[in-house]
C-alpha cells in the first residue's frame, strides 16, 4: 500500500514538473526559476520512482 502511494506521489511530481515546463505561462523575468523548478521536480520524481522500483531487490 505504502509503495503504491509512493508511486502515485512520484507520478504527481513528474506531472507537475512537465506542466510547469511545457504549459505554464511564465513572465520573462521568471523563466530561469521556472526552468529550474520544473526540471528539479521531473528529476526528483523520476529518481524516486526508480528508487521505489529497485528498493529491496
Amino acid at each position: 500500500m505504502i509503495k503504491q502511494i509512493f508511486i502515485f506521489i512520484s507520478l504527481a511530481i513528474i506531472g507537475l514538473g512537465f506542466y510547469l515546463a511545457l504549459f505554464y505561462d511564465v513572465p520573462d523575468a521568471q523563466m530561469m526559476i521556472n526552468f529550474f523548478t520544473s526540471w528539479f521536480l521531473i528529476i526528483i520524481g523520476i529518481s524516486s520512482l526508480l528508487i521505489n522500483l529497485f528498493w529491496g531487490k
Binding site: 530561469m32 528539479f40 528529476i43 529518481s47 526508480l50 529497485f54
Partner: peptide, 24 residues
C-alpha cells in the same frame, strides 16, 4: 539500500548539479 539505489541517488545528485549550473 542496494547498489542500484545508490547508483540512482548518485545519478540524481549529478543531474541536480548539472541542472543548477545550467540554470544559474
Amino acid at each position: 539500500m542496494n547498489k542500484k539505489v545508490i547508483f540512482i541517488l548518485i545519478l540524481t545528485l549529478v543531474a541536480l548539479v548539472v541542472l543548477y549550473l545550467y540554470s544559474f
